[in-house]
Amino acid sequence: MLRDITLGQYYQTESVIHRLDPRVKLTGTILYIISLFLFNQFTGYLVAALFLCVVIRLSKVPFRYMVRGMKAILFLLLFTMAFNLFLTPGEPLVQFWKLTITREGLRISVFMAIRLTFLIIGSSVMTLTTTPNHLTDGMEKLMGPLKKVRVPVHEVSMMMSIALRFIPILMEETDKIMKAQIARGADFESGNLVKKAKAMVPLLVPLFISAFRRANDLAMAMEARCYQGGAGRTKMKPLQYARRDYLAYGVLIAYLLALMLMKYVGSFI
């Protein structure tokens, strides 16, 4: 199940979206997510969907990779939908037993589902087209001004990029430990919650010990390679805006303007 989480998984290919500066992609994703919550009409969603489709097309990442990220939040999605569907007061549409579906409820739950879906796919586009390293570089640079107020921006981004590198390694390790314990008759599946929690001990102890060991080794290896924090460091791949990045910002603004326009026009319909 863990492997279904697409967030943080880079899809290697050549495309305009891949080549964009990570700062553009980060800003773009954030603005896109905000934009999803700006409007309440279907026309607005149409524009948002269109924009997303074009970006996905340009990224050359197969669509099923985007959808894969959805699997992980399917439960959350259904839960939110059900919650909104049954608990929004308003004009009743259908009624059975103690549950009532209202027109407003239906509307809100559908909107919520669309928003969440677009949100996940939108951020998947970013993570699928940007190497995690590039992403953390972008964040470091975008949050650069925070350094002045003593926020350890470099350290945080270094931590993130290391965490991202070790996630697949630790996942594989979890799988191996699980198998080793199952081979000794461990049972991770049956029993009530307490029993299940107890059954996790033979998995978690070796995993934690290994993670700490790795952390220790890695810290030593980094020091051995002269790592001493962000000061005095140069960059192998410094971020520099190219023409296409300015162009992309232009497209983003155009998209936002189009949405505003829709909202304005939509309010008359």
């Binding site: 191996k176 430990i177 198998k179 080793a180 000794r184 001990v201 033979p202 070796p206 290994s210």
Partner: peptide
């Protein structure tokens, strides 16, 4: 399995 570290707890 290969690594005893994966099972000792």
């Amino acid at each position: 399995f290969q690594y005893p570290e994966h099972q000792l707890f």
